[in-house]
Design a protein around this nucleic acid. Structure first.
Lengths: 124, 124
DNA sequence: CATTTAATTCTATAATACTGGAAATATGGA
DNA sequence: TCCATATTTCCAGTATTATAGAATTAAATG
């Protein structure tokens, strides 16, 4: 990913409404959610939402497909991955004691905890 | 990290000049670089740079300390880590086949490749 | 204290982005 | 075809952000 694309992604996510939309879609999984339901769940105007979905689409962070009268939106995990990779590439001048904690935390992200089965003494 | 802080970080990085500054500081390591040298290396005006350093500072992505006449700036790896973690938390509704590639790529970031490749032998 | 160097703050202008009402487009069904 | 639903596009007003010249603060040194 080049700098221009990364800025488009960062800029798209640097907005309360759009970040909420993106996080909703990330959590929703690859099935996607119709625009109308996104508007309903997040309680936002449809035209405003549409504009924001457009920004996220142009950044490549989400994709859409029509299904009947609805248009379903879903997160583009690949773009998200590329953007995150861009941010951490060539970092720390090669000293892993600085950025190891970074990747460690990321690999423990809640989404994969179940399958990774990494027993980080969960305090339940 | 809460949504508000994450947006401040994303917004700070969603700018060509600031992203360049941040990447320069990330690559430079914890020692930091004086503002003047950042301006020289990136060929930007000092007052414009100062404004951008201020935005990055307020977002918590960089920190500064005075040393003589110079003010040295350095990346705050912790804030960077928290922001990335925020973006991937609770993703994919728990199905790791979606986000496993994401964390995999991140854990292969160039900065840690050297140590990842050499498991235990030459680790100091 | 005056001078030099380093960096910031002030200020005005230009550019860009956000919002929401109204109109338009697309689809499915009676 | 006519209508209801789903979503987008258009547009104008408002707000925010970016830029750069000029002035200012801060530190070191003679």
């Amino acid at each position: 990913m080049d700098s221009k694309s990364a800025i488009a992604c960062l800029s798209a996510l640097a907005h309360d409404g759009r970040l909420s939309v993106f996080r909703l879609l990330v959590q929703a999984g690859p099935g996607g959610i119709p625009a109308g339901e996104i508007a309903r769940r997040l309680d936002v105007l449809r035209n405003t939402l549409s504009a924001n979905l457009n920004v996220l689409s142009h950044a490549g962070l989400i994709a859409s497909r029509r299904e009947g009268r609805s248009i379903l939106y879903r997160a583009e995990y690949g773009a998200m991955r590329d953007m995150l990779a861009f941010l951490v590439e060539d970092c720390c001048a090669g000293s892993s004691e600085i950025c190891a904690p970074l990747t460690e935390v990321l690999s423990r992200a809640a989404c994969c905890a179940a399958d990774k089965a990494k027993p980080l003494e969960s305090a339940q």
